[in-house]
Nucleic acid binder design. Structure first.
Lengths: 265, 265
DNA sequence: TGGCTTTGTCTCATTTAGTGAGATGAACTC
DNA sequence: GAGTTCATCTCACTAAATGAGACAAAGCCA
């Protein structure tokens, strides 16, 4: 089965091929990918494959597995990935704060940013209590509309942009998450009125609940969102208010710090 | 000033150029890089630059900054980076354990793996106490020889491989860290005798101290190392023993889990 | 509003530089 | 030591990336 070509479509073919190699490797998880995996899934010759593998290895984007003939993602990606997740320096600022929150309340806290029509998870900090979430780890992506953080992000985009995104995601939201646009718009209204988001109930993860608040820059555009997730049974009125206040305090402090940092060019 | 060409030397030039673009972008931190940055630091024409930028953007490896004409690392790198750091599935296993340790003892705990002649930090979990460390975050790299985790990793490599690495790093270790090979070998001996590493005293970070233990696979090869760092004043004999035991328990549990996971093909 | 700067795109000729086929060498397995 | 798979090499070929410079578009500042 050839790799999905709709995503990795245009551009210099060498580049596309290289990225396809990385994708195939990533799909292999911690076992990586074998020469055959590449040859089966991709559509270029073996010498070319080896040339690219060699190049990617030299750049640190791949490394060879202890198992001969298998390849793993290289640590250079780790460095770049850590950088990539630090958009606006947000991640560094958020990390210790998420930890504080998780330790204090025992729930799990997240930092999200917008990535096109998706929300991408920049950082997770799990607490002591068990938790179910759509994202498993840093780097996880969700279509905007799923989860409370999505709502917090969507609410502060322009109306046109928002409807464009929702329109784009509508089918997927309904099919995969059983979430209707109406529900999302209702929650956006709730976010705008009360300053926090709760997420739309879908068919998945019915026993979990969460909260999210946006992280806005000085002009009101969303830089990201902080969210938390917990068992519904833990979401008592008082706990909700406590956690919400905790999150708001941390985000306010973050934004202050950010302003100190962002504007010294 | 052109980008360091010794690292990014050979391979298909398109690939090299693309990676150079990513490196330049990464160097810009959360401010990314501008068209001029690329044109100054790299040696290809503007149309080519734009073609590559476009390609990289389509692949999700770059995104354009809110500031026009600047580019940031894309979130695809985040996904790949998260994967890359999960060598042997170790990171997923270690993450909650590092958190437990950090919460329990208040010190900072790390997961390291070997990356050629370097040690790369796969995960950090800071505790409540302030801490100084050579690595600031996930993705940080140190020449093998620096820090306690390095010792733990080096100790379980073959003698020939070890001396090759030390030979390679010797100059840098002395110049940048004021660490002598003799000292490293002494600490390796200590690791092998007592099962844990303490790190070699260099001129940097004199007020901090640490411990590390290796994470070995079934055949005794090092998969990684777990380490901790703390103010010297906190390193009492009893605290040291407690932390060490805590780390050993967590690593033992990890290795058990790993064996359960790694061998079901 | 209008001129100015910088970003981004286009065209086209040039030729580099990546490509495929198949053979060969190296490493590990049984 | 035979067999298998991984990795490299050579060489001719031409597809495909490149550079120069012109052109279009988008902010910016007065």
């Amino acid at each position: 089965m050839p790799v999905n070509e709709s995503i990795t479509s245009s551009g210099p073919t060498t580049l596309v091929h290289a990225m396809q190699i990385l994708q195939v490797t990533a799909r292999g998880g911690h076992r990586g990918a074998s020469v055959d995996d590449y040859l089966n899934e991709l559509s270029f010759s073996r010498p070319t494959l080896y040339r690219l593998l060699k190049g990617l290895k030299q750049q640190g984007f791949l490394r060879s597995s202890p198992i001969r003939g298998r390849y793993l993602l290289g640590y250079e990606l780790l460095v770049l990935g850590a950088q990539a997740g630090n958009g606006a320096g947000l991640r560094d600022l958020a990390r210790p704060r998420l930890l504080t929150l998780a330790q204090r309340w025992g729930d799990s806290f997240y930092l999200f940013a917008r990535d096109g029509v998706n929300a991408v998870c920049l950082e997770v900090q799990n607490g002591a209590y068990p938790v179910g979430s759509f994202v498993r780890a840093t780097g996880g992506r969700l279509p905007l509309g799923v989860g409370q953080a999505s709502i917090a992000l969507l609410a502060y985009l322009g109306a046109d942009e928002r409807s464009e995104i929702l329109n784009h995601n509508a089918e997927q939201l309904m099919d995969e998450y059983a979430i209707a646009i109406d529900g999302i718009e209702a929650e956006i209204a709730h976010q705008l009125k009360h300053g926090y988001a709760r997420g739309v109930e879908g068919s998945l993860l019915p026993e979990y609940s969460g909260l999210a608040i946006p992280i806005l820059d000085h002009s009101g555009h969303p830089l990201g969102a902080m969210s938390c997730s917990m068992l519904k049974s833990r979401m008592t009125k008082s706990h909700k208010l406590e956690v919400l206040q905790g999150m708001q305090e941390e985000v306010a402090a973050m934004v202050n710090q950010a302003h100190g940092l962002l504007y010294l060019d």
